[in-house]
């Protein structure tokens, strides 16, 4: 699958929201972020993949809660006082979908420089390479720009997958 584009602005910057998962710092485009919430009571969805294993009531809408730790092979962890849900809106086959991402700590809205970014190395990564769009070096360490489309699109199923599912 082709990697989702990063839309650096004219000056080579990108406004992102940074947050922690385990010992890693991740960043998502700020334009995707709808809201940052305290943890909500979650309802488990039996039979769903653990990656999106529960739903919450977000202002009258039912949205799934995703645990990106699982996509990046980190162990599940207990919630802390810093835990937040970042509600984002992303595009799946042309339809906007909202989902909440469970984070261990939300930092700030920051601007990343294209000059500091590089593609994930071909070897030596613990993670699936197609889940990472870019790695951005900063003074505090490396920030990971995950590829949400690559992570979540298999769940939404292209036409092909939906077709397979409909035949019993």
């Amino acid at each position: 699958m082709e990697k989702s584009m990063i839309h650096w602005d004219a000056t080579g910057g990108l406004e992102v929201l940074t947050f922690d998962l385990g010992s890693e710092t991740f960043a998502l485009e700020a334009v995707l972020v709808r809201e940052i919430l305290d943890l909500l009571p979650e309802t488990a969805v039996p039979g769903a993949l653990a990656l999106v294993g529960s739903v919450v009531n977000f202002r009258g809408k039912i949205i799934p809660i995703a645990d990106l730790r699982l996509a990046f092979g980190m162990p599940a962890a207990e919630a802390t006082v810093d835990s937040r849900i970042v509600v984002i809106e992303m595009d799946a086959h042309g339809e906007p979908i909202q989902l909440g991402i469970r984070t261990d700590k939300v930092h700030e809205v920051a601007t990343l420089r294209e000059a500091d970014a590089e593609a994930p190395p071909a070897v030596g990564m613990r993670w699936r390479r197609d889940y990472v769009r870019e790695l951005v070096r900063r003074e505090e360490g490396v920030i990971v720009l995950p590829d949400l489309t690559a992570i979540f699109n298999p769940l939404t199923g292209g036409d092909d997958a939906a077709g397979r599912a409909s035949v019993h």
């Binding site: 039996p46 993949l49 999106v52 739903v55 009531n57 039912i62 979908i97 989902l99 939404t156 599912a165």
Partner: peptide
């Protein structure tokens, strides 16, 4: 009735959710 997210479309046991 609220519809389930597209991300849960593989879960066929549920027709939707409610608050």
């Amino acid at each position: 009735i609220k519809s389930m997210s597209l991300l849960h479309q593989a879960v066929t046991t549920f027709a939707g959710a409610t608050i």
